[in-house]
Structure formats: structure tokens, C-alpha cells
Deep mutational scan, measured.
Amino acid sequence: MVVWDEDGFQGRRHEFTAECPSVLELGFETVRSLKVLSGAWVGFEHAGFQGQQYILERGEYPSWDAWGGNTAYPAERLTSFRP
């Protein structure tokens, strides 16, 4: 999975191949867009795999509404991930 700290695949970029309990440890404040290259990941609103969670299947997510636009409580950012 590849993530960016700005919408539209802009800004700082990082690629994950294993779980990440906090993007803050990588110098990111948040993740605002992402691409899942294969498989599925779970993205969490807060560090430590806490808060609202989203199943992220293979594909592109250019902004928060692409992963959470249909929920009652959409998270505008993700800060931890698990494959």
C-alpha cells in the first residue's frame, strides 16, 4: 500500500508492506490519499489501531470520501494500518 499526506496523491509518500501502528512515527501527521496495490488492508482513524476502521480493497483512494464517504461517522484521515 502506498500513502500520501495530501489529497490527490500529493505531498509526502510512503510505501507499506507490513502493519503500521502510527504514521506519526514516520513523520506524517495524517494520511489523506492512498493506493492499495494488492490484497486488502484495514485503515484506522487513530494510532494504535483505534477509532473508526475501514476495509481498503485493491484500488485508488484519492481523498477521505473515497474510503469513508458512506458512513455515519466518516474519518477524514487515517493514522494506522494493518494488512
Rank of each mutant, 00 (worst) to 15 (best):
M1I: 15
M1D: 04
M1V: 13
M1F: 14
M1G: 00
M1T: 01
V2I: 15
V3P: 01
V3S: 01
W4E: 02
W4A: 01
W4H: 01
W4G: 01
D5T: 14
D5G: 03
E6C: 06
E6W: 03
E6V: 02
E6Q: 12
E6L: 06
D7E: 15
D7S: 13
D7I: 14
G8V: 04
G8A: 09
F9K: 00
F9A: 00
F9M: 03
F9W: 01
G11E: 01
G11F: 02
G11A: 01
G11P: 00
R12T: 09
R12D: 04
R12N: 15
R12M: 05
R12S: 13
R12F: 02
R13M: 14
R13E: 04
R13S: 11
R13N: 04
H14Q: 10
H14F: 15
H14I: 10
H14P: 00
H14D: 02
E15W: 08
E15V: 09
F16P: 04
T17K: 10
T17N: 14
T17I: 12
T17S: 14
A18F: 06
A18M: 14
A18N: 14
A18T: 11
A18I: 05
A18S: 15
A18P: 05
E19C: 08
E19I: 01
E19T: 07
C20E: 05
P21D: 08
P21L: 07
P21E: 14
P21I: 06
P21R: 09
S22L: 01
S22G: 08
S22W: 00
S22C: 08
V23R: 00
V23Q: 04
V23N: 01
V23M: 11
V23I: 15
V23A: 05
V23F: 00
L24V: 13
L24D: 05
L24S: 15
L24Q: 13
E25Y: 06
E25V: 08
E25L: 09
E25S: 10
L26K: 08
L26V: 07
L26S: 04
G27R: 02
G27D: 06
G27E: 15
F28R: 00
F28M: 11
T30H: 15
T30Q: 11
T30P: 04
T30C: 06
V31L: 03
V31G: 03
V31P: 03
V31W: 03
R32Q: 03
S33L: 02
S33A: 01
S33D: 01
S33T: 03
L34P: 00
V36S: 00
V36E: 03
V36I: 09
V36Q: 02
L37D: 01
L37G: 04
L37E: 06
S38Q: 12
S38Y: 04
G39A: 04
G39V: 03
G39F: 02
G39N: 05
G39C: 06
A40T: 13
A40M: 09
A40Q: 08
W41S: 00
W41N: 00
W41M: 00
V42F: 06
V42H: 05
V42G: 00
V42K: 03
V42Q: 08
V42P: 02
G43H: 02
G43Y: 03
F44E: 03
F44C: 05
F44T: 03
F44Y: 10
E45V: 05
E45C: 10
H46R: 09
H46Q: 13
H46S: 09
H46I: 08
H46F: 12
A47Q: 10
A47R: 10
A47K: 11
A47D: 14
A47Y: 07
G48T: 10
G48Q: 11
G48Y: 11
G48A: 10
F49L: 01
F49R: 02
Q50P: 02
G51C: 07
G51P: 02
G51H: 07
Q52P: 06
Q52V: 11
Q52K: 13
Q52S: 14
Q53W: 10
Q53P: 10
Q53S: 14
Q53Y: 03
Q53E: 07
Y54N: 04
Y54Q: 06
Y54R: 10
I55N: 15
I55M: 12
I55D: 13
I55G: 07
I55K: 11
I55F: 10
I55S: 13
L56H: 03
L56S: 02
L56D: 02
E57Q: 09
E57P: 13
R58H: 05
R58N: 13
R58G: 10
G59C: 01
G59A: 05
G59P: 03
E60N: 14
E60F: 05
E60M: 06
E60K: 04
Y61K: 03
Y61N: 02
Y61L: 01
Y61E: 01
Y61F: 09
Y61A: 01
Y61W: 04
P62S: 14
P62L: 05
P62E: 13
S63I: 03
S63N: 09
W64T: 13
W64D: 04
W64L: 15
W64S: 15
W64G: 07
D65A: 08
D65I: 04
D65G: 13
D65S: 15
A66F: 08
A66V: 11
A66L: 09
A66C: 06
W67C: 04
W67T: 06
G68K: 13
G68A: 09
G68M: 07
G68D: 07
G68N: 12
G69P: 06
G69W: 06
G69H: 11
N70R: 15
T71M: 11
T71Y: 08
A72L: 13
A72W: 07
A72S: 12
A72V: 11
A72Q: 10
A72M: 06
Y73F: 15
Y73D: 05
Y73R: 13
Y73K: 08
P74F: 11
P74C: 08
P74A: 13
P74Y: 09
A75L: 14
A75Q: 10
A75K: 12
A75D: 14
A75N: 15
E76A: 13
E76C: 14
E76G: 13
E76L: 14
R77Y: 07
R77Q: 14
R77F: 12
R77V: 12
R77T: 10
L78W: 00
L78M: 08
L78F: 13
L78D: 03
T79V: 14
T79Q: 12
